[in-house]
């Protein structure tokens, strides 16, 4: 009898673990926004050295996702890989986001996909981000696309303009989400000219490009796609652990593509098919 009771308890424990994923919030729809073709000003002449020189760049029309890719969106991709793994008897889980046990506002995967469906997915490497984008039939934005989507045709410091007021989740105090991630789209006032949200703060965003501090001196004037080689991939936009000054529209940063951290996520881009332009 005792053994049976123990068995039932054990089974219940297993079931609890298996169905730990909970939460019932409806995830936000991540629309693709059209960024019209045209020339914009890239870089800055009076900020960091790697933002120089200021130069004009022409980009074809493209789409950019309104929000950073969320936990719930990434979960669908991850789940499909799990199912594929089961079929092929492959044991190693592919593209699984890193766990952040010490950060309860992020937590572990896959539990956080249901607990925080609208939070940007973090703990993903550049390779994970690229794989997700390909699975969606899209791609990561190039650095130039990212900057155009963030600054539009202005010379503003941040996507919303030049005002210091907190329109983004950064390391500054009293921005509504101190020391933690925010659900995507929490700062509607902070949207960019093209309507993209959270292009400053919350999470750094992987771009497709390799980093080079002198690329702007030599980049093509039309549709630049970054250097052909490098060690680091460009990340843009700053994050919840960064001061507002690092979240500017022109600020460039770089990380090893293999890193999986709590402050880097990504958003998607897609080219506009020529006949639909």
């Amino acid at each position: 009898m005792k053994v049976r009771l123990f068995g039932i308890t054990f089974l219940l424990l297993l079931l609890t673990l298996a169905f730990h994923i909970e939460g019932d919030a409806e995830p936000k729809e991540n629309k693709m926004l059209l960024v019209s073709a045209g020339t914009f000003t890239m870089g800055s002449g009076n900020r960091a050295l790697d933002e120089r020189p200021v130069h004009k760049v022409y980009l074809d029309s493209f789409y950019i996702s309104k929000y950073e890719v969320t936990n719930s969106e990434y979960y669908e991709f991850w789940k499909s890989l799990q199912e594929k793994n089961e079929k092929t008897a492959e044991v190693k889980p592919q593209h699984t986001p890193e766990n952040f046990t010490h950060l309860p506002h992020i937590g572990n995967w896959p539990e956080r996909a249901k607990k925080f469906p609208d939070h940007p997915v973090v703990g993903v490497s550049w390779h994970d981000a690229k794989a997700y984008a390909q699975w969606k039939g899209m791609r990561l934005p190039t650095e130039a696309e990212w900057e155009k989507a963030a600054r539009g045709y202005s010379n503003n410091l941040w996507p919303w303009g030049n005002a210091l007021k907190p329109n983004a989740n950064t390391a500054e105090d009293n921005d509504g989400f101190d020391n933690r991630l925010a659900p995507v789209g929490s700062y509607p006032q902070g949207k960019s000219f093209f309507g993209a949200m959270d292009m400053a703060g919350n999470v750094w965003e992987w771009t497709a490009d390799w980093y080079s501090d002198v690329y702007y001196f030599h980049s093509p004037k039309q549709n630049p796609t970054g250097p052909t080689e490098g060690s680091w991939r460009v990340v843009r936009g700053g994050s919840w652990i960064d001061k507002l000054t690092r979240c500017g529209t022109t600020f460039r940063f770089y990380l090893y593509p293999t890193l999986k951290t709590s402050f880097v996520g990504f958003r998607l881009a897609k080219s506009v098919e020529k006949d639909k332009k």
Binding site: E98, N99, F100, T101, H102, L103, I241, D242, T261, S262
Partner: peptide, 17 residues
């Protein structure tokens, strides 16, 4: 162990920045 590793890497980055 891996959690501790992750925690320390995160701490390292935040301190470095």
């Amino acid at each position: 162990d891996h959690s501790t590793y992750v925690q320390n890497v995160e701490k390292g980055f935040i301190s470095l920045f």
